[in-house]
Amino acid sequence: MSLGRFILKRALQGVFVIWGVVTVVFLLRFVTPGDPITFIAPLDASPALRQRIAAELGLNKPLYVQYFDYLAELVRGDMGYSYISGTEASARIFARLPATVELAVVATLVAVALSIPLGVVSATRRHEPADYAATTFSLAGISTPNFWLGIMLVLVLSVQFDLFPTSRRALGFVDALGYLAQGNPNGLIVWAKYITLPAITLGTYFTALITRLTRSGMLDELGKSYVRATRAKGLPESLVRYKHALRNTLIPVITVLGLQLGSLIGGAVITEAVFAWPGLGTLVINSINARDWPLIQGCLIVIGTSFVVVNIAVDALYAYVNPRVVYD
């Protein structure tokens, strides 16, 4: 099977998982106590008014009709209207998405850029100070609750030294680029100042995790006979390490990264809460507290779908890095 067909097959499986996600999210409303109308209608609403609201929202139809209506609307990109603000749910969600994507991408890039060299150094200088420093950092990193780390960063770097803003997001990356195009680099600087602490907060766990995985993977690979063979053949040590050992190390690292994507999104939710970052995470928490079902469902579907999509991309990357992979 070619790489193209493999990706197509995974995409088809992905569609089924997304359908499962949508179904679970849809059913969530029916297994949770509390009638949504109680949250929408005025407190003194008469039964007639309540019925009219239910009819307007289609909440009085049988379950399966509501389900197929919901699917049909979803396919057209319609997630319904927020119960609270009356605005389109999809518009609200997609307005919040860039902030979360920016945060997740910056955190991942920083994590990958720091952790792989750190893991390699740690493995190639085993039992040297650099190794102890890297292992201590990675143990602390996977054991620290990220929201607490964020608060400590605010305490030291914002409250004490006033280097970074304590919370919020001044402008988006696209806006910052717009200013840059007009010859004003300040937008980018402000953007960077605001995203630094949230990105460190979100990225530390992953930096630590990938450092650990890279270190143990490199140690495994460097002990294998093919590495001895390449060394015996007279290849320079740098080529042995980076072309051969590291490449094989990255294969399990990529798998775990794909599986850990969920924790990246979960981490983003709490990071956003700590920094009042106007992304999907704060939106999902607010809409759960307000029982704003169209928004809750929309957010969960967008989160679940992005997880599935990125995982397919990770699988493709995996197949690309590892030529031995059997596309089954």
Partner: peptide, 24 residues
């Protein structure tokens, strides 16, 4: 296993918030 795939698509923290927020 398909059920577990769907479960994995929800980050545990997000799912936990949703379940606790909604169930009380």
């Amino acid at each position: 296993m398909r059920v577990s795939d769907v479960m994995l698509a929800f980050p545990s923290l997000v799912l936990a918030i949703a379940l606790i927020g909604l169930l009380g």
